[in-house]
Nucleic acid binder design. Structure first.
Lengths: 357, 357
DNA sequence: ATGAAAGCGCTAACAA
DNA sequence: TTGTTAGCGCTTTCAT
């Protein structure tokens, strides 16, 4: 911030020969009556002097910053894409979004970032299901700053005004059915216990899917986190394959990263994909369409998720003006689902799950 | 930002029975003499009332925000990793870093984000070589807010105080030599003309590398952007391979994404990698170690790059206190290289360039 | 060792 | 239609 004197509304007022209140009114396009001559003079002065609004001063005075803060565990993969989408969406509704990466799931770092955001007096907070305890969150955020979560299940509403969650349950259910239809009579899920909440949703979905199948299908879950390498995971899956029938074994991974790791390891061992294994990931990361073979995955509609996060946020902020710009079906879905909104995923089929040949 | 009255230093002053000036001194741990009793009382009051500093007010008064702004074209891949690293580094030196994704290389969006950052009165700006013109940048940023660039070549110092650049020239040179040593006597570079500046550095490096080889080697460059699909690119490379000798053809891609696309396309066509092609990417994206086959790539030392960006920034900000925390060799390298600092890359060898079998 | 007071740049009643 | 003025919460001389 430049120490040298910046151009302020006082300068503009002088140059335009009006009062600072008038300048403020012009600059903020307020609905008070003003002569077009005044408007012109002020705008010209602003242009000529190179005026740039000081939003800190404005926010301080207005007691509202139109600034939102967001915390993600990483800029990589889904979280980065979602953050980008949230920035776009926030802007569309008149807010700015600062995103911080907690660089993992470290509660201490989360806490620090949240504190900074609160010190900046952001109007609202957007977080993933936090690593820090609910109690710590309640205490830190307190009242007054709405917190909207994404992919967080079962948080009490006295902490967060709501959550917008990807529907992994239904999504994984669908993946299971897809694998079954492609000939799999054995299905393995490769989970990540370290990401408990979101892993759990997937497990439920897989279990539901298997149970609903027209015939009994064997299924196994593995915790990829607890193995030293992806090769070790592969060994386990190989064992399952050994005692299963002749058809392909279906594999669903926690996300596209572990799924791709597994697929590559299988290829290195000489297995065919598809053929010996049919493999599907989750996230529809761009890598799924450029890897070999290209990989079936669950697409996450980040734009829709962002819209609903924003919707909940604006409701909490009582920003009726912005709120009125939502399409009717969004508002009604939000009203129907309450403070935990489900976002449906979409299965994208690629070669990794083509019918065994 | 909560409309309801927030706890201010006035409240603390009252509770502790001291003046607001004293409260401010205590809270900021200033070096003025204070009785430990006063300190205790103030800190206790702050604790009890749940005080949280309002940094907007502080920044406004201090005319310094300790806030930095950064613009990246995307949160994906290298830029996201670098942004994360910059946040960490900035924090280590007492600053906070808000990162915005321009969602591509759109000059209009860049402009908007920069303007917002300047309105927030950030102390400094960190950008990639911008899509917007140098003239527009000069006009927008003006004086007073230092701009440090990364991966930007040849920007005048009256716009940016300096640039910290990945040394793609030397890096690509090294990749070429590596491919040669592994048996390639023909080398193809798959570029991206849309990313002109950074593509150019790679081309120079490849050319240099080829020229320095002990024997003549054929080389070709293709612009992946100008083809409809990666298969179309592959066709071109196949043509090159057809008129080259029996050994493997070496392929270097603009980044790991186009490289992996190419590799997968080649595998789909039945080529062997390594074998028919030896393939190397750039960025050392995490995907390089989980794809099939795992892929040789150039690692980008983001932590080092972040340190130097911070160093240039702190110099521009005259923050001698923070500056003194840099290791001697960093300071001397910066002094030696001036306002365009080169960061060396590191070749990471993987199976995609193993000796042809 | 502590306090009084003048800002920082802007907003928002309220007056004129 | 425009202007006056009292804050917003904090920092920072300068007195005491």
């Amino acid at each position: 911030m430049s120490k040298k004197r910046q151009v302020t509304i006082v300068d503009l007022a002088e140059a335009a020969g009006v009062s600072i209140a008038t300048v403020s009114n012009v600059l903020n396009r307020r609905k008070v009556p003003m002569s077009s001559e005044t408007i012109r003079k002020v705008e010209q002065a602003a242009e000529e002097l190179g005026y740039r609004r000081n939003v800190m001063a404005a926010s301080l005075s207005r007691k509202k910053s139109y600034e939102l803060g967001m915390l993600v565990p990483s800029f990589a993969g889904y979280h980065g894409r979602f953050a980008e989408e949230m920035q776009r969406t926030a802007h569309a509704y008149g807010y700015h979004l600062s995103v911080f990466s907690a660089a993992g799931f470290d509660p201490e770092i989360e806490k620090r970032h949240l504190d900074v955001l609160l010190q900046r007096r952001v109007d609202g907070l957007i977080c993933h299901g936090l690593a820090m305890s609910q109690e710590a969150t309640r205490q830190l955020v307190g009242v007054g700053t709405p917190l909207v979560l994404f992919n967080a299940w079962g948080w009490p509403t006295d902490i967060a005004v709501g959550a917008v969650n990807l529907d992994f349950v239904v999504g994984c259910d669908e993946v299971v059915r897809h694998l079954y239809e492609r000939g799999c009579r054995t299905i393995c899920y490769l989970g990540k216990s370290s990401l408990y909440a979101t892993d759990r949703q997937r497990r439920i979905g897989v279990r539901n899917g298997v149970q609903e199948l027209p015939e009994p299908v064997a299924s196994e879950s593995f915790d990829a986190d607890s193995f030293a390498s992806i090769e070790a995971v592969l060994e386990q899956v190989e064992a399952v394959k050994a005692r299963s029938g002749p058809g392909p074994v279906g594999v669903i991974g926690f996300d596209d990263i572990v799924t791709l790791s597994f697929m590559s390891a299988a290829l290195r061992q000489g297995y065919r994909v598809p053929g010996d294994f049919l493999i599907a990931g989750i996230n529809n990361d761009p890598v799924t369409s450029i890897c070999y073979p290209d990989m079936t995955s669950l697409a996450l509609p980040t734009a829709m998720q962002a819209e609903f996060v924003m919707l909940l946020m604006l409701q909490a902020l009582d920003d009726t003006a912005a709120l009125s710009r939502f399409p009717e079906d969004y508002l009604s879905k939000a009203a129907r689902e309450g403070h935990e909104i489900q976002i449906p995923l979409r299965l994208v089929q690629r070669r990794s799950t083509e019918r065994a040949y």
